[in-house]
Design a binder for these strands. Structure first.
Length: 878
RNA sequence: GGACGAUUAGCUCAGUUGGCAGAGCACCGGCCUCACAUGCCGGGGGUCACUGGUUCAAGUCCAGUAUCGUCCACCA
C-alpha cells in the first residue's frame, strides 16, 4: 500500500478526475438508450457572465440530481448552454465604445455585431470553464447558445407561428422607454425604487392639482376628476382657460373613474403622451396627444421654450417659472416609486411608440391550468400563488427592442404599399407589389429565445430523437428572481408550441447572501469569487456546503466557517479511507465468507441502509440539506466515531483471521457504498477513494471504471437489521456513560477504570458478549453482573434500564464527587416533580393516547430509580 | 396599497402529519489514544419574537401585534 497523505489535498485530485470523466465520455446521454430518460436543461448563464454564488448553488444542485439519477439507472441528460443576453451585452459594448468616444452609430450595425460576436467568443467560455471547475457533469456535446443557427430558427418559427395565429401584433402604445439604452423595455424590465421628490400643487384656473412631474404639464390635454366627486361636478364637460407658463391654455375637464377623489386634491392633469394612466384615459375620452419629451430624454419642440432641455432640468425650470407667475400653490415633500431600467438604472420615460407585442393572455390561461392541475409542480409551495397572481394579471408582452445584438425581428415593410410581411425566410421584394422592402431594424427581447430553451436546445422545430426522448424535461432548477422573466414564459411557450409542459417540477432555490445577510452584488463589493473559495477549500467542500444550506425556500447565508467545516468533513472521509486502506493487507473475501458478521458489522450495515433511505427520500423531495445532513451524520458520527473504533479492535488485536477478514469486508463494503451515496455531492473525493478500493465480482471491469456510473445504493426494506440496532444501543449507551463519569469526575483518560454493569433482563446477553468491546472503547475493565449490588464508593449512571457503576476508589476526589452527585439528585428530583404533576392530572391520563401516558409513567419510574440510586451513592461516599 | 416569507442556543440554521427542543460553528473542561489536532472524549447554554385562543398536550394549529426581508402594484 502506497503512502497516502494524512491531509486531503483537493487540488491534485480535482484537476485529474474531471478531465478523465470527460475523456471517457461519461457525461453523454444517448436518445437510443433503453433506460428511462431524465433530463435537466441548464438555466443558460449570460455569455458575458462569470460564475457567481447563485450559479454555484444552482448548478451544484442540478449536478447532484443528474449524478444521482445517472447512477440510479436513468438515461440522464443535462443540457448546457449560454444566453446571448441581448440588452446586457449591448449595453456593455456601448459602454466600451463610449470609452473610446464613439457610439454604435459611428461604427454601424455590422461592425457592432462583429464586436458582439467577438466578445461572445472571447468571454463566452469563461463560465463554461468555471462550471467544469465546479464538477458539472453536463453533456458538452450538446452545448447550445441562444443565437446558434438552430435556436435562431426556433425563434423565427415561433415568431412567425404566433404572428399567423394573431398572437403577435404591432401596436402604438405607451411603453417603458429607457433614454439611456435607447430602447423600449417590457414591464418586467422596469425596476421600482422609492425616491423622495416634490409634490407640486399647481393652479389650473379654478382648480388645483398635485403632480410629481410638472414638466409633463406641457403635454396636458385635459384635466380629470372622479365622476362622483361632487366638489368638481360643475366643471365636468366645461373647457377651462387657464394661465400657464406659455400664456393661456385651454383644457377640457373630464370625469374618469381612474381618478382617486381621496388622493391629493382629487383632480389630475391628463398627459396621454407621458403617463400610462393618462394614456388610457386619453383613449377612453378621445383626447389628443402632445409629445413633449423625446426618446433622448430631452424636451421636444412641442415644449416651446423648454425645447432641448433635459427632462429633469425642465422640471426645475418650469417650477421656477410657475412660482414667478404665482401658479404654484404649495410644494410638499413626497416619497414615491420611480421606474428604473434594470440595466442602466436610468429613470424610465413612458412614451408612445409602435412596438411588437405578444398577446400572452390565452397562453397564460393554459400555463395556469398546468400548475393547478399539478402537471407542473412548483416548489417551495408559496411561489405557486405568486405565479398565479402574475399569470392572472398578465398584460401584453412587448417583445421588440431597439437594439442590435439579438434575434432580428423577421418582419419587412413595403414603403410603396404600406404592407407588413412576416416570414420564415428572408424577403427581398414585396410579395404584394414587388417593391423594395425594409427589414424591421429591431431585435427581440432576450427572454423570447430563452423561453424556448427546453425544446429549442433539443432540436425543435425539428422532430429529433432528442426532443422525443427528453421532452418534457424532469425538473427546472433556478432562482426565484426569474420566475416571471423565464419560468412563466417557458411554461406558456412550451405548452403552446409543444402542447406539453416544458418541465414537471420547478425547484426555486434560495438567494445566496453573505455572512451578514447582504445580497451579494457587485456594486456592494461583497462578492467573493466562488472559484477562489473552491481553490481554498476544495470543490467538494464547497458543493457540500451549498447542498447543506439549501433548505426549502429561504435565503441562505454562507460563511467561511461553514465551508471550513465541510472541508474538515472531506478530510475526515479521507482519513477514514486511509484507515481502511492501510488495513486491507491480506484481505481475502473467501476467508471472510467463512465468518459471521458481528453485531457491529450488522449494525453499521443497518445504519447505512437507513442513511441510504434518508438520502433518497430527501433527494426525491429536493431536500438537499436533509440529504447532506444524513450523510454527514452517518459518516462522521456512526461510521467514524463508532464503527471504525470498534473495527480497530478486530484489526489490531484479534488473533482470529476470519473475524479480521469479516471486519475488512465490512469496512470495504460500507465505505464503498457510502462513497457512492456521497458521490453526487462530493464527486471528486468519492471517485478518488473509490478507485483505490478493491473492486471484485463478475462486473468488475465495467463497474470499476468510475463511481460516476456505479449504481446508486438501493434502500431495500431487508437492509435494516432491527436486532443489531437494538443490540448496539446499550453498548453505545454504556460506553458513553462510562466516559461521562470519567470526564465529570476528572479522571485522566489514560487511567483504566473498574466498572460493574448491571444489565436489564433484555440487555444481559448482549452486554455480556460486548463486555470486552465496551471495556476497550471506554478504557475500563468491565464486569457484567446481573443482580450486582452497588459497589462502595462508586459513581452510578442509569442508561435505559442498565445500571453502570464506575468504581471510584483511588481515582477520584471524593469531595468533588459528592458535589456532583448532589447536583444530579437535584436534577432528578425536578424531573420527578414535573412528571408526577403531569401524571396526576386526570385530563392528561384520560385523554392522551395510552402509549404517551405509558411512556411518561416509565420515565417517572426511571427518574425515581435514578434518584434513589444517587442518594444511595451519596451515602456511600460518607 | 396588496401578497408572501422570517423571528428557535452567542452566531448560522434544521425541526415534514401537534406528543421528551436539535445540528454545525463558537464557548468551557480533559486529551498529541499507532486514520485524522482540519482530530478525540465530555460538558454548559434556549420563556421557540410578543399577546390571546383551540387542545389532555402547541416551536408546530387559529387570531392579532411588533420587527426584519422579498415580490407585485398605473394613487398622479
Amino acid at each position: 500500500m502506497a503512502e497516502i497523505a494524512d491531509r486531503y489535498d483537493p487540488s491534485i485530485v480535482e484537476s485529474r478526475w474531471y478531465r478523465e470523466w470527460e475523456e471517457r465520455g461519461l457525461f453523454g446521454a444517448d436518445p437510443a438508450s433503453p433506460k428511462p430518460p431524465y433530463c435537466i436543461v441548464i438555466p443558460p448563464p449570460n455569455v458575458t457572465g462569470s460564475l457567481h454564488w447563485g450559479h454555484a448553488l444552482n448548478n451544484t444542485l442540478q449536478d447532484i440530481l443528474i449524478r444521482y439519477k445517472r447512477m440510479d439507472g436513468y438515461n440522464a441528460l443535462w443540457v448546457p448552454g449560454t444566453d446571448h443576453a441581448s440588452i446586457a451585452v449591448h449595453v456593455l459594448l456601448e459602454r466600451q465604445l463610449a470609452a473610446e468616444g464613439k457610439t454604435r452609430h459611428d461604427i454601424g450595425r455590422e461592425a457592432f455585431l462583429e464586436c458582439a460576436w467577438k466578445w461572445k467568443e472571447e468571454s463566452g467560455g469563461t463560465i463554461i470553464r468555471q462550471l467544469k471547475r465546479l464538477g458539472a457533469s453536463c453533456d458538452w456535446s450538446r452545448e447550445r447558445f441562444t443565437m446558434d443557427p438552430g435556436l435562431s430558427r426556433a425563434v423565427r418559427e415561433t415568431f412567425v407561428r404566433l404572428f399567423e395565429e394573431g398572437l403577435i401584433y404591432q401596436d402604438d402604445y405607451i411603453v417603458n422607454w429607457c433614454p439611456s439604452c435607447q430602447t423600449v423595455l417590457s414591464d418586467l424590465e422596469v425596476e421600482r425604487e422609492e425616491r423622495d421628490t416634490d409634490f407640486v400643487y399647481i393652479k389650473y384656473g379654478p382648480l388645483t392639482l398635485g403632480t410629481v412631474r410638472p414638466e409633463t404639464k406641457l403635454g396636458d390635454t385635459a384635466v380629470a376628476v372622479h365622476p362622483k366627486d361632487k366638489r368638481y361636478a360643475k366643471y365636468v364637460g366645461k373647457t377651462l382657460e387657464v394661465p400657464s407658463v406659455e400664456g393661456t391654455i385651454t383644457l377640457r375637464v373630464i370625469a374618469d373613474s381612474a381618478v382617486d377623489p381621496k388622493f391629493g386634491t382629487g383632480v389630475i392633469k391628463v398627459t396621454p403622451g407621458h403617463d400610462p394612466i393618462d394614456f388610457e384615459i386619453g383613449r377612453r375620452h378621445n383626447l389628443s396627444t402632445r409629445t413633449v419629451i423625446g426618446f433622448d430624454g430631452r424636451m421636444t419642440a412641442e415644449a416651446g421654450k423648454y425645447a432641448g432641455l433635459d427632462r429633469f432640468e425642465a422640471r426645475k425650470r418650469i417650477v421656477e417659472d410657475m412660482q414667478q407667475l404665482g401658479l404654484i400653490e404649495r410644494i410638499e415633500p413626497y416619497r414615491h416609486s420611480v421606474g428604473l431600467c434594470y440595466r442602466s438604472k436610468t429613470v424610465v420615460e413612458p412614451l408612445i411608440s409602435r412596438q411588437w407585442y405578444v398577446n400572452v393572455k390565452p397562453l397564460a390561461e393554459v400555463a395556469t391550468k398546468a400548475v393547478r392541475g399539478r402537471r407542473i409542480k412548483i416548489l417551495p409551495r408559496p411561489w405557486v400563488k405568486t405565479y398565479y397572481h402574475w399569470m392572472e394579471n398578465i398584460r401584453p408582452w412587448c417583445i421588440s427592442r431597439q437594439l442590435w445584438w439579438g434575434h432580428r425581428i423577421p418582419a419587412w415593410y413595403c414603403d410603396a404599399d404600406g404592407s407588413v410581411h412576416v416570414s420564415r425566410t428572408d424577403l427581398t421584394e414585396c410579395p404584394k407589389c414587388g417593391g423594395p422592402l425594409r427589414r424591421d431594424p429591431d431585435v427581440l427581447d432576450t427572454w423570447f429565445s430563452s423561453g424556448l430553451w427546453p425544446f429549442s436546445t433539443l432540436g425543435w422545430p425539428d422532430d429529433t430523437p432528442d426532443l422525443r426522448t427528453f421532452y418534457p424535461t424532469n425538473v427546472l432548477i433556478t432562482g426565484p428572481d426569474i420566475i416571471f422573466f423565464w419560468v412563466a414564459r417557458m411554461a406558456m411557450l412550451g405548452l403552446h408550441l409543444m402542447d406539453e409542459v416544458p418541465f414537471r417540477d420547478v425547484y426555486l432555490h434560495a438567494i445566496v447572501r453573505d455572512a451578514e445577510g447582504q445580497k451579494m452584488s457587485k456594486s456592494k463589493g461583497n462578492v467573493a469569487d466562488p472559484v477562489v473559495v473552491m481553490e481554498r477549500y476544495g470543490t467538494d467542500a464547497f458543493r457540500f456546503t451549498l447542498a447543506a444550506l439549501a433548505g426549502l425556500g429561504r435565503d441562505i447565508r454562507i460563511s467561511d466557517e461553514r465551508i471550513e467545516g465541510y472541508r474538515n468533513f472531506a478530510n475526515k472521509i479521507w482519513n477514514a479511507a486511509r484507515l481502511v486502506l492501510s488495513n486491507l493487507d491480506g484481505f481475502d473475501r473467501a476467508l471472510a465468507a467463512k465468518g459471521k458478521p458481528s453485531v457491529a458489522d450488522r449494525w453499521i450495515g443497518s445504519r447505512l441502509h437507513a442513511t441510504t433511505a434518508a438520502v433518497r427520500k430527501a433527494l426525491d423531495a429536493y431536500r438537499f440539506n436533509d440529504a447532506a445532513a444524513a450523510l454527514y451524520q452517518f459518516l462522521w458520527n456512526e461510521f467514524c466515531d463508532w464503527y471504525l473504533e470498534i473495527a480497530k479492535r478486530s484489526l489490531y488485536q484479534t488473533e482470529d483471521s476470519i473475524a479480521r477478514a469479516v471486519t475488512q469486508r465490512t469496512l470495504v463494503e460500507t465505505l464503498e457504498a457510502t462513497l457512492r451515496l456521497l458521490h453526487p455531492f462530493m464527486p471528486f473525493i468519492s471517485e478518488e477513494i473509490w478507485q483505490r478500493l478493491p473492486h471484485e465480482g463478475p462486473s468488475r471491469p465495467e463497474a470499476a471504471r468510475s463511481i460516476m456510473i456505479a449504481a446508486f445504493p438501493k434502500a431495500g426494506r431487508k437492509g435494516r437489521d432491527a436486532t443489531a440496532e437494538r443490540e448496539m444501543a446499550p453498548v453505545i449507551a454504556v460506553v458513553s456513560a462510562i466516559r461521562t463519569v470519567r470526564s465529570e469526575s476528572r479522571i485522566l483518560p489514560a487511567a483504566e477504570l473498574e466498572v460493574t454493569v448491571r444489565p436489564s433482563p433484555a440487555t444481559a446477553k448482549t452486554l455480556k458478549a460486548a463486555a470486552p468491546l465496551i471495556g476497550g472503547l471506554a478504557r475500563a475493565r468491565v464486569r457484567i453482573a446481573p443482580g450486582a449490588e452497588r459497589p462502595p464508593l462508586s459513581a452510578h449512571v442509569v442508561e435505559s434500564g442498565v445500571d453502570v457503576f464506575v468504581h471510584l476508589q483511588g481515582v477520584v476526589d471524593v469531595t468533588a464527587e459528592r458535589a456532583r452527585l448532589g447536583k444530579e439528585i437535584d436534577k432528578a428530583r425536578k424531573e420527578i416533580a414535573f412528571l408526577a404533576g403531569k401524571l396526576s392530572r386526570p385530563d392528561f391520563v384520560e385523554r392522551a393516547p395510552a402509549d404517551v401516558v405509558a411512556r411518561e409513567r416509565e420515565r417517572l419510574g426511571e427518574q425515581q430509580q435514578i434518584e434513589a440510586k444517587l442518594t444511595q451513592s451519596l451515602a456511600g461516599l460518607a
